[in-house]
Write a protein that binds this DNA or RNA. Sequence first.
DNA 1: GCCATGACGGAGC
DNA 2: TGCTCCGCCATGG
Length: 105
Amino acid sequence: MSAYETIYTIVRQIPRGQVATYGQIADLANLPGRARFVGYALFRVAPDSDIPWHRVINAKGEISESPVRYGSDHLQRVLLEEEGIQFNPQGKINLRQYRWKVESL
DNA sequence: GCCATGACGGAGC
DNA sequence: TGCTCCGCCATGG
């Protein structure tokens, strides 16, 4: 299984109403320190896939904004709110409350 | 084949 | 608390 497929498989396992960080996904995919790789992988597959990419955020608990995303970051926030995840006035998520707790690999 | 870049993370100041 | 710098490596020109 390629590293990409491993990443996708892990992201698909994130429960509804919870989130995971790029670093966390990278660690689970046996790619420690390669959080950027995770972001890159998700960007390539997001538009037309069944992967819940919106449940993956950065270590600060924020939705990563980037010029290449145009407005999809706003969509991500909407999707998360639909799942019951609340945002701070600063647009941040309380990771202590919503972070995905992995029980098995 | 080399160079610049990027959905990031963590340490340092 | 917040900003800056460095490491990491696949991808595109």
